[in-house]
Simulated scan of single mutants.
Amino acid sequence: MEVRARAPGKIILAGEHAVVHGSAAVAASIALYTSVSLRLPSSPQDNDDTVTLNLLDVGLEFSWPIERIKEILPDSANSIASLPATCGEETIKRILTVLEEFNIPEAKIGIASGVVAFLWLYTSILGNKAAKVIVSSELPLGSGLGSSAAFCVSLSGAFLALSDSVKVDFDHEGWVSFGEKDQQLANKWAFEGEKIIHGKPSGIDNTVSTFGNLIKFKSGAITCIKSNMTLKMLITNTKVGRNTKALVAGVSERKKRHVDAMTSVFAAVEFISNEFASIIQSTLVSDDDDDFIKKEERIQELMEMNQGLLQCMGVSHVSIETVLQTTRKYQLTSKLTGAGGGGCVLTLLPALLSAKVIDKVIEELEQCGFQCLIAEIGGNGLEFRFDGRS
Rank of each mutant, 00 (worst) to 15 (best):
F271T: 15
L349E: 03
I320E: 00
F292M: 07
E297L: 11
D290E: 15
K329E: 11
T327D: 05
I280W: 05
T326A: 13
S273Q: 06
A339Y: 08
G343V: 08
G314R: 05
D289M: 12
K360M: 07
Q307F: 10
T322D: 04
D359Q: 13
V361H: 03
T322V: 13
E297Q: 14
V285K: 15
N274D: 12
L332D: 02
E363Q: 09
V345Y: 01
R298Y: 04
K329D: 05
S316P: 00
E297G: 01
E321Q: 10
S319K: 06
V323E: 00
N306L: 06
E297K: 12
L353D: 04
G343Q: 08
L348S: 07
T322M: 08
S286H: 10
V315G: 02
F276R: 00
V361Y: 01
R328A: 14
I320S: 00
L352A: 13
L348Q: 09
I279R: 09
T333Y: 12
S273D: 01
L309N: 02
C312A: 15
T327R: 10
D359K: 15
S278E: 13
N274I: 04
L310N: 07
I279C: 07
D290Q: 13
M303K: 04
Y330N: 08
L353E: 08
I320M: 04
S319P: 05
F271L: 12
L332A: 02
G340Y: 07
